[in-house]
Design a binder for these strands. Sequence first.
DNA 1: GTCTATAGCGCGATAGAC
DNA 2: GTCTATCGCGCTATAGAC
Lengths: 192, 192
Amino acid sequence: MRTRDTRTAIMDAAQALIQRGGVNAMSYQHLSDAIGIRKASIHHHFPTKDHLIEAVIRRYAAYFLGLVDGIAASKLDPAAKLRKYAGLFEATLCEGERDKACLFGMLGAELTTLGHPAAAEVRRFYRDNEARLARVLEEGRDTGQFHFEGKAAVVAALIFALLEGSILIARAEGGAKRLRGIAEQAFALLRG
Amino acid sequence: MRTRDTRTAIMDAAQALIQRGGVNAMSYQHLSDAIGIRKASIHHHFPTKDHLIEAVIRRYAAYFLGLVDGIAASKLDPAAKLRKYAGLFEATLCEGERDKACLFGMLGAELTTLGHPAAAEVRRFYRDNEARLARVLEEGRDTGQFHFEGKAAVVAALIFALLEGSILIARAEGGAKRLRGIAEQAFALLRG
DNA sequence: GTCTATAGCGCGATAGAC
DNA sequence: GTCTATCGCGCTATAGAC
């Protein structure tokens, strides 16, 4: 099962590079340097760069949405769920060598340069996150914990855009602490 | 003054390309195709790519902050000022061939791949925007138009991150209409 | 499954004619 | 100020030995 290990190592390195600098900052040469394997060997596992990006995208979406579903299904109250959700973004920012943004936040910035399949998955990731957030927000409005007018879907889009934007801007200044402060302020406004 | 015209044309094309696809999507070859001039001629006006990026960054920051200062100095009430500010981001998204993000939002995503002078200007742009927003927010809190606990600076960071994130995500789905909806919802929460 | 070697292209940048 | 021509590099990708 050495194949699995190498495959995973390649995907891990590729994901980290994209999260830090975008798709164009992830090259077969950089991967080669990072994991100590020749460029040609990477092509054995992922014939083209698009194949590699596709694999990384799918794995990330499945993993991240799995965590989100875990939070949604938990016994926490809606406010705690939102706080845990924001914690996922905080954790991303602190992870490993630091300054990683959300993978799909980076891909969103590069959307116009992406192929059709990848662009479609970016859209789907956004929709999936917002759908899950909307349910938590409705739950919180029903229990009286949140107070907002209008559709939960719009507030969900607001929360998601806020966290994606914050993680990018927090890399420039303030880091995870700043991200947490912004998220807490948003939740305070939601409590009304 | 043909020089001025060519210089401006190069900067306009470079800015548009960066706003759509990031720094790596802007190449001397693409500029050459876009404005009908040879690569070597572009090097005459901007010896290196870093020079060009620097010039575009400075011009954008000066122009954008000029608009913001105009809004801040106007006789509008604080809520209307915020709405006008959000309108700047909407206008960016609709402009020209469409799907342009904020220049500094794109640069923020690519921050780790930027040179030191450019990265410093990205940070400064964020700080400058947040400082102006914070003043409008304090103004609104004083007049009783806005209701929030905590520091105006944190709410300012929230609004700014929200708009930067929204413009990136709105490119994937919903466009300016979606951006406007999110901004309006945020302002509704501020009114409490 | 990993390697060496190389093809082929686009990139940023330079030299020098006009 | 714009051009042609070219350099050197890093990139994605392929061929074929081990």
